[in-house]
Design a protein around this nucleic acid. Structure first.
Length: 572
DNA sequence: GCCGTTTTCGGCCCGACTGTTTTCAGTCG
């Protein structure tokens, strides 16, 4: 099986090399196709088998042929290899250096035989770049700084890491001068799983003071660029951050523009052109007349569509849905009434049951399911059937102290190699709800992992599959699963799949969430809390669910504790 | 190479900032 990411990477490489040879328009076409493929929730290899590649957006006859060839050769592309022979450049490495694009990279290759990051660094350190025509000392210095940054920032930041940085910048700016509007935009506002850099927009009567405060922030390691309306700094040990100062009359168009995504904006601008408008960050224009720019809402309205929430702006069908007035009414944090996956000191949590319950209550929830680990997960101090009995006794004693807040008794059991639980049936029967997860054998192949999950879903005592793909963002990809087969099993047995909201998990990913929503599979958004201060992770899970077009009705824990128990009881 | 509210050819998003030019190309988002 050749993964979607592998196919997309090949197409990206083709685009890079073509761009360096100054091939017109094709690079964009290949990149657009690559983006479609890496965000496609179904395996593209399956689409290819059905002969339906050309139905995917941005993929026509030519690229479909390339994809078939890549699949046939197990991920290798003879076409790319031929390109590389004529131009042996690691373009993706070089383009990651700030200020280096196709033209300059080509010049460096022709004059200095620069092909990758190492040879680029050598050329810069020996002063050869500064002596080239059209380059200079300053450019050489910038390239060296860029190399360092590219090496350090390989892999993007988690959403949960970027959010507090953005909030700190906003707090600093608010102290520096009067601001009428301030917000973060970009992938942060769209709540992407990972974030490349941070975009802050502001309207103010004191632009100079705010720009100065921004580049002088104590978190800033250096200034990358600075101008009257735009500055970029590098956060110490962190990402780049941009500040843009705007006129209040252009707040909506600028927020729309800088929120992106790029593909969403390109699609919008095409629609604008078709309607005789021009859309930019300064507004929607008919000739030289500004017809909408104060709010995002009026821009979308003028373009003949409903307002599109930032989380949906990826050009994956949201524009058509907005035109047809068929956008989903997205779930919000306040729709969640409980949390169906939490831990206590009985297994590997850091707080007692009562502390966890009180924390959940003050976070605004009505109930939690206590789902400590089971016996086979030794490293997490998993509970034996006897200890679960004792835990049940403690729970009975607690119920009076919680003033209406409910604790469901559950567990997070281990799905063993053959798909069976590591808990005897008699013990399983006593739980209000059972979450089942794969913790061991994470390297199973696709067929095996799928079979384990399907077996678990078919078990009448199991209600929810926890972190269904086992991924850790930036650390391990997780096991591959046949989502279709898992969805079929969930539909057949009316079981739920979890969106685990731990920042490095966010598992299911939004692409798979969207597939579940489309097919009517119930979801559970849970914090997987091991500490009293983890319940706010639910906001990350909700954002991810929103990116997957999820509504309140799709999520199990938007109902009452009683309804959840009733649903679980039906399985046995 | 892809696509269609200009539909099978002829387009393909738009503007700011920088460095090295001495009027603009390259890069970025």
């Amino acid at each position: 099986m050749t993964s979607n990411q592998e196919i997309a990477d090949v197409l990206y490489q083709i685009a890079d090399l073509m761009e360096m040879q100054e091939v017109a328009f094709k690079p964009q076409a290949y990149r657009r196709a690559a983006q479609t493929i890496e965000s496609w929730s179904e395996e593209v290899e399956e689409v290819a088998k059905r002969g339906e590649l050309e139905e995917l957006p941005g993929i026509g006859k030519g690229i479909a042929e390339h994809i078939n060839e890549i699949i046939l050769n197990n991920g290798r592309s003879p076409y790319l290899e031929k390109l590389k022979k004529s131009l042996p450049i690691k373009a993706d490495e070089l383009f990651a250096v700030e200020g280096l694009g196709p033209k300059r990279a080509m010049m460096l290759y022709n004059k200095l035989k620069v092909t990758d990051l190492a040879s680029l660094e050598k050329a810069a350190r020996t002063g050869k770049i500064a002596r080239l025509e059209h380059f200079g000392e300053t450019t050489q210095e910038k390239i060296l700084a860029g190399i360092e940054f590219a090496r350090r920032s390989k892999g993007r930041m988690l959403l949960s890491q970027a959010l507090p940085i953005a909030e700190r910048i906003i707090a600093t700016l608010k102290k520096a001068g009067p601001v009428s509007n301030i917000a973060y935009a970009g992938s942060l506002r769209r709540k992407s799983t990972t974030i490349g850099d941070i975009d802050i927009l502001v309207t103010t009567k004191k632009p100079k003071e705010l720009m100065a405060a921004f580049v002088d922030m104590k978190e800033a390691a250096r200034t990358v660029v600075t101008g009257p309306t735009k500055s970029t700094i590098e956060i110490r040990n962190g990402p780049h951050a941009d500040l843009r100062v705007l006129d209040p009359s252009q707040w909506g168009s600028a927020l729309q523009y800088f929120t992106g995504s790029k593909n969403h904006n390109i699609a919008l601008r095409r629609i604008a052109i078709a309607k005789g408008y021009k859309l930019s960050e300064y507004g929607l224009f008919k000739g030289s007349k500004n017809v909408a720019s104060k709010t995002e809402e009026e821009i979308y309205r003028k373009l003949g569509m409903d307002y599109i929430e930032p989380e949906l702006r990826e050009d994956t069908g949201e524009i058509k849905a907005a035109q047809d007035r068929k956008l989903p009414k997205l779930i919000g944090r306040s729709d969640l009434r409980g949390d169906l996956h939490t831990h206590s000191t009985w297994s590997d949590g850091t707080a007692s049951i009562i502390e966890m319950a009180q924390a959940a209550k003050s976070y605004g929830l009505d109930y939690i399911a206590l789902t400590d680990h089971t016996e086979k997960l030794k490293i997490a101090n998993g509970l034996t059937p006897q200890r679960f009995e004792k835990q049940a006794a403690e729970l009975r004693g607690l119920s009076k102290k919680l003033g209406g807040f409910q604790i469901l008794h559950g567990c997070e059991l281990n799905i063993m190699e053959d798909g069976t639980p590591d808990v005897p049936e008699a013990t399983l029967k006593r739980f209000d709800i059972v979450v089942a997860s794969i913790h061991m054998g994470l390297t199973n192949d696709r067929a095996r992992a799928t079979k384990r999950l399907v077996n678990a879903i078919s078990n009448p005592h199991i209600d929810v599959i926890g972190h269904p793909t086992g991924r850790l963002i930036g650390k391990r990809p997780g096991y591959e699963i046949d989502l279709d087969a898992v969805i079929d099993a969930c539909k057949e047995h009316d079981k739920a799949l979890e969106i685990d909201s731990q920042p490095e998990r966010i598992d299911l990913d939004f692409g798979m969430v969207r597939e579940c929503v489309k097919r009517g599979v119930r979801l559970s958004i849970s914090s997987d809390s091991h500490t009293t201060d983890s319940f706010h992770f639910l906001e990350l899970g909700v954002s991810n669910a929103r990116r997957g077009w999820c509504e309140k009705k799709d999520v199990l824990n938007t109902t009452s504790a009683e309804k959840v128990k009733e649903w679980a009881r039906k399985h046995e």
